[in-house]
Design a protein around this nucleic acid. Sequence first.
DNA 1: CGAGGAGTTGAGGCTAGTCAAGGCCCGTGG
DNA 2: CCACGGGCCTTGACTAGCCTCAACTCCTCG
Lengths: 267, 267
Amino acid sequence: MPLALIDNHTPTAAPRNTIAPLASGATLAELISLLDGSSRAADTRHEPLRLWRVRAGATLLHEGASQPWLHVVRSGAFKTLRTAEDGYQQVLSLLLPGDTLGFEALCRRQQPASAVALEDATVYALTLSELTALELQHPAFDRAVQYALTRQLVRCAEMAEVMAAVAAEARMARFVLWLSSRMAAQGESARRLRLRLGRRDVASLLGLAHETVSRALTALAAQGCLRVNNRDIEITDRAQLQARARHTRGFSDEGVPVVRQPDCVAA
Amino acid sequence: MPLALIDNHTPTAAPRNTIAPLASGATLAELISLLDGSSRAADTRHEPLRLWRVRAGATLLHEGASQPWLHVVRSGAFKTLRTAEDGYQQVLSLLLPGDTLGFEALCRRQQPASAVALEDATVYALTLSELTALELQHPAFDRAVQYALTRQLVRCAEMAEVMAAVAAEARMARFVLWLSSRMAAQGESARRLRLRLGRRDVASLLGLAHETVSRALTALAAQGCLRVNNRDIEITDRAQLQARARHTRGFSDEGVPVVRQPDCVAA
DNA sequence: CGAGGAGTTGAGGCTAGTCAAGGCCCGTGG
DNA sequence: CCACGGGCCTTGACTAGCCTCAACTCCTCG
């Protein structure tokens, strides 16, 4: 059933189908290795997994819609966003291959956020019942899903740490470092990376004005930490970039001894 | 239950055992209902689940330690924090009953953050192998764990939205509303709530100066949104508080009715 | 070629961080 | 018993960083 969902981000008519099923056979083993980050190409069994191609700019998930589909990003990138009642679009996260999409529906009736493809992408598409059935049949898949979910929890805490930086330059530096580590985890270069988001989206994600994002990037470039060309960033001095990331306003250094006490428990 | 227990935050030697096993028999059904938020008291089978009592101020999880224990908060509250190399303690999250603790170890060798009890608490304690065994034996438990993990993902996105508010007063207002909704989900009052964190911890969590937190609270109180007494907060005008939460700098309340979609489905 | 969006840069005002002092509540110890 | 000390919280004054507004350039696309 070739269902063609149409994105609504253009006030004019959407010309082509921006989301379409992909015929290529996808194996469960590939999905599992994608979820838990391992690169093992296990069994070659040919499970009938649904695969979708999503065009850049298309909206895969619609905020507020009760969405029956659960996704895992296979290639490409997405941003999630919530639109306030005044129309402001708050960017909430950046999703890369291996990340889950729409699993929030497991505990909420409606999707809490929209998901928009930042570039052409492919995603696995499962229904809730398919997910539970696969989990029951394949314990390895079950663990892989848990692995992916907890990994995203870790990512979330990392982003909280990025956001908690008080100074704009530090926040920007932390975000670049965070993205770098994510790219490294994907097997891509940790030095040269591509900002998939526009300045306005980065600003929204970091809670800054987009002019401040631009200024922070040029400032970091002027200090020799980065080389910036539009959305392409090269980290030229990682150590100094990390120093800038630490730099909270006023709190430079304090020798606070860390108390290390084991609150132990008898087994 | 009496809530005004004094915390022993003395950095000197911990006198007594601050974490101790609890003999009370805990059922798997109770844990499942705790995880997925339902209140059904299902089967009365007496599974030998480990239960710990944690004194206020005690550190349940140590950052960096390879921790074999996975926890689910049964009562009380925790904060998670990461200490930077300069000694600054960054508060990352606030955990309440039903939240998981330490599951990040499922995809990381080390605990990414410490967890400190804000008040006397009880937690379930499982080893990784016990978790997987229980999940294999009891599909309901497996789904409950997934439910809890995705719920925490949703919470994480909510916190990102709180943090993304540019104005300090708006950020504070959003945090109070967020906490209120969490307390309501716990079955407690959404109007009168108790900040479990000190001003300094709230400031750290929100990325503000603790003086700013204090000022924002008094400002919101002066506007009639709140009544503040130390860590006890009463929401006196929820509508105005929500208006303040929307208030991003410059984008004041212009009546721009864009799209009015139903906020939530019944029950 | 014009339109429009994205990015950059500058000027100015105001928020919020910083430093400092004081009040309050609790603990300890004289 | 009260003085003392050390937290936590509050308030004030000052200042700097960031948001706002407003240009301008560059690039893409129709």
